[in-house]
């Protein structure tokens, strides 16, 4: 899933209004994001699904509940671990890293 996953046109919601863009860095790679959208959404749009890796078994985890309850989207954001990226908005220049275990 490399091309954008954005829904540009929608039968009920209409055409997507252009949003202000910001840049975040995923493991150092620049990713374009819409201002104010959650980190995990910007990554999903770029085709990135693995946000967290379990400590013992090294199993990947991604967005699961999408509302800040399950913790499967925890990442290291600007050096801070355990940030729930499904409900934390992007900021220009933000650095996000996959979190391994309890970090």
């Amino acid at each position: 899933m490399s091309q954008s996953m954005r829904i540009t046109d929608h039968p009920i919601l209409g055409a997507d209004e252009p949003k202000k863009k910001v840049t975040i860095y995923y493991e150092g790679t620049p990713i374009e994001a819409n201002e104010g959208e959650p980190i995990a959404i910007a990554l999903a749009n770029a085709g990135i699904r693995t946000l967290y890796v379990t400590e013992k078994m090294n199993k990947p985890r991604g967005i699961f509940c999408g509302q800040g309850r399950c913790g499967s989207c925890r990442m290291i954001v600007d050096g801070v671990p355990d940030v729930k990226t499904c409900s934390t908005p992007v900021k220009d220049g933000m650095r996000v890293q996959v979190q391994h275990g309890l970090a």
Binding site: P60, G62, G66
Partner: peptide
């Protein structure tokens, strides 16, 4: 990753 709850899919 890619398995998610309905609420997450709707929010996205």
């Amino acid at each position: 990753p890619g398995v998610m709850l309905a609420g997450a899919a709707q929010t996205m």
